[in-house]
Amino acid sequence: MTNTITFDVAGREPVTIAVRNAIIAGWTGRNMDAVQHHIDELEAIGVPPPSTVPLYYRVGAALLTTDKLIETVDETSSGEAEPVLVDDGENLYLGLGSDHTDRQLETHSVALSKQICAKPVASTLWLFSEVADHLDDLQIRSFISENGEWVPYQSGTLASIRPLLDLVAASPKAQSATRLAAGTAMMCGTFPVLSGGVRPARRFRMEMEDARLGRRIEHSYEMSPLPVIS
């Protein structure tokens, strides 16, 4: 299935990309102690550890969305802010997305928990070539709404994630060592929760900041839970 999405591109005309392949790269931390911390963090809520790291999950391309409202099954899901690589066959772009995941289903199957949820992405992309020389400096933060207040949830730089082109080269949709197959979007891993553990939240906000070029990508969304009928 093809999912056609129009993105704004900083400094350029908007681009419309027919996404045919969607990949979630998991357990991508550069520091193995941090990776183990995240594994332990999820294992504490019943999620089985991965068979290998990193791990590439395939999900339906139709799950990607720039909408600000997503429908979920009950209220047991939560977001994870991640850098996103998108290749349209002409250029490789960097964006921002959330690997929104059903935490209850995750205890049964990580792959199924990822497939069942929409994957919100910001509607703005940066040319990868413009940030390639300072990727490690890019900062990603996320926030969740609790008791009517935005609470810091995640924070980190891309220095804590494996080099993005290493993830590209090892991915199941690598076109070359530096490019994905045309029409591929890949989320590239997330950051540990700052405090309080992995938990659901009705509203999620994320941002990626490039201090060197003085710009930022932001996106927020809300989940609308559907009733669980049995």
Score class of each variant (00 low, 15 high):
I5K: 03
T6D: 09
F7C: 12
D8F: 11
A10V: 10
A10T: 07
A10E: 14
G11Y: 10
E13P: 05
E13N: 13
P14R: 04
V15I: 13
V19F: 05
A22F: 02
I24E: 01
I24F: 01
G26K: 01
N31F: 04
M32A: 09
M32P: 06
M32W: 05
M32Q: 14
D33Y: 03
A34M: 12
H37P: 03
H38A: 15
D40A: 09
L42F: 10
E43H: 11
A44V: 01
A44M: 07
A44Y: 04
A44H: 14
G46K: 04
T52L: 11
T52D: 12
V53Y: 12
V53I: 05
L55E: 01
R58S: 00
V59S: 00
V59R: 00
G60N: 04
A62G: 11
L63C: 01
L63N: 00
T66I: 13
D67N: 12
D67M: 07
K68P: 00
L69T: 04
L69V: 07
I70W: 01
T72Q: 03
S77G: 06
S77Y: 04
G79M: 03
D87M: 12
D87C: 13
D88M: 05
E90G: 11
N91C: 11
Y93D: 08
G95A: 11
G95Q: 09
G97E: 08
S98Q: 08
T101V: 04
D102T: 03
D102Y: 02
R103M: 09
L105N: 00
E106D: 05
T107Q: 07
H108D: 06
S109L: 08
K114H: 00
I116F: 00
C117F: 00
A118G: 03
V121K: 04
L127Q: 15
F128S: 12
S129I: 08
V131H: 15
D133A: 06
H134I: 08
H134C: 06
D136F: 13
D137S: 15
L138P: 02
Q139E: 10
I140W: 06
I140Y: 07
R141W: 10
R141K: 07
S142I: 02
S142H: 08
I144K: 03
E146S: 08
E146Y: 10
E146A: 14
N147L: 05
G148A: 01
V151N: 06
Q154C: 07
Q154W: 15
S155R: 10
G156Q: 07
A159V: 07
S160A: 14
I161M: 06
I161L: 14
P163E: 06
L165Q: 11
D166N: 13
D166T: 12
L167W: 14
S171H: 00
S171I: 02
S171A: 03
A174E: 03
S176I: 04
S176K: 11
L180W: 11
L180S: 14
A182P: 03
G183D: 06
G189S: 08
G189C: 10
F191W: 13
F191T: 09
F191I: 12
L194D: 11
S195I: 08
F204S: 02
E207N: 05
M208Y: 04
M208I: 07
E209I: 15
D210M: 06
A211L: 14
R212K: 13
G214C: 09
G214Y: 13
R216V: 15
R216G: 08
E218V: 12
E218R: 15
H219Q: 14
S220Y: 05
S220M: 11
Y221N: 07
E222V: 08
E222I: 06
